[in-house]
Design a binder for these strands. Structure first.
Lengths: 159, 159
DNA sequence: ACAAATTTGTAGCTTTGGCTACACTTCCAG
DNA sequence: CTGGAAGTGTAGCCAAAGCTACAAATTTGT
């Protein structure tokens, strides 16, 4: 993600051939940006759940949850700490900061809405669980509102 | 993606502490797997479009489309070639193989279905375009069928 | 209390996907 | 027909997210 302008002195004689970057590239740029936050979102959500269900969140549990090695979890949690979303100390459990908790709550709600929406339109529960996991990070607030409305509509039996 | 067992002699005295990997990790593993194919899907789709609209697909056009540098495009296209989805020669345009074209067609259809579905449930077109871009890769065939059904339902004015 | 099991940390590797800087082809205009 | 602009290639850097192997700490069972 980092840019390196420290060597780009922008000497006026030679514009270093900047690529034009069409407006149509916006959705892609957005999708890439989402990507960067996906991991953080998944992690804070998992941490919150584990704290709720077990009282504390240990790295091994996260590793099991995501199906990755504890090393990957360790590094990712370090990143979350640097970003001010989580806190931890060597050999101690992981906890969320206030910011992390807020993010976790938002993600949990969004996840639930997406999942219930998929189920409400007739997607089998197991498939819906998988799709929701992948889709949730790309659902905008506007779309989420529509999902919510439709899910509750169907729940009320108005179809 | 590569694994390195060349030093894992599996001496029977010490099982190298295999992580348990809960069943709940499946959706995440699946999502990660999707990730790997997302780029390929986006690229073949873009290549097909550019071939259709301009007769040929040049790297610069792809770079503009995705908002990335031509270097990134170059490397990604090389990977597509290795995977048998595209073909190119130095300083020549990029074209799709038969496999690449089939993939592109599937992706285009899926993209259209997702986009139309979002619009049909009342998401503003611009927002729908962005969301579709991010969501499409995570929509299973089952969910896609539901999307399709609902979109055509609404189109027919049955609500 | 101590050995074993579990958990966590660290070193070092891979691939993917970003980037800049610079070199080289192509191609067209004058 | 030649020179510059546009397009492409290559070298080399970065960060994220995956891994194994090994080391250290902590917890647990006897």
């Amino acid at each position: 993600m980092r840019t390196f302008h420290h060597l780009t002195h922008d000497l006026p004689g030679k514009p270093p051939f900047v690529p034009p970057a069409s407006p149509a590239s916006e959705p892609h740029r957005r999708t890439r940006r989402d990507h960067a936050t996906e991991t953080a979102e998944d992690y804070v959500e998992a941490i919150a759940e584990l704290e709720a269900s077990r009282g504390e969140c240990r790295l091994v549990e996260l590793a099991k949850r995501f199906g990755v090695s504890h090393v990957t979890v360790n590094r990712t949690v370090s990143r979350l700490c640097k970003e001010g979303l989580a806190e931890t100390a060597p050999y101690q459990p992981v906890s969320l900061t206030a910011r992390g908790r807020r993010l976790a709550n938002r993600c949990r709600k969004r996840h639930e809405v997406v999942l219930q929406f998929l189920v409400s339109i007739g997607v089998p529960a197991e498939v819906a669980a998988i799709d929701a996991e992948g889709m949730e990070h790309h659902v905008s607030p506007q779309t989420l509102r529509r999902f919510e409305a439709i899910a509750s509509e169907k729940d009320a039996g108005c179809n």
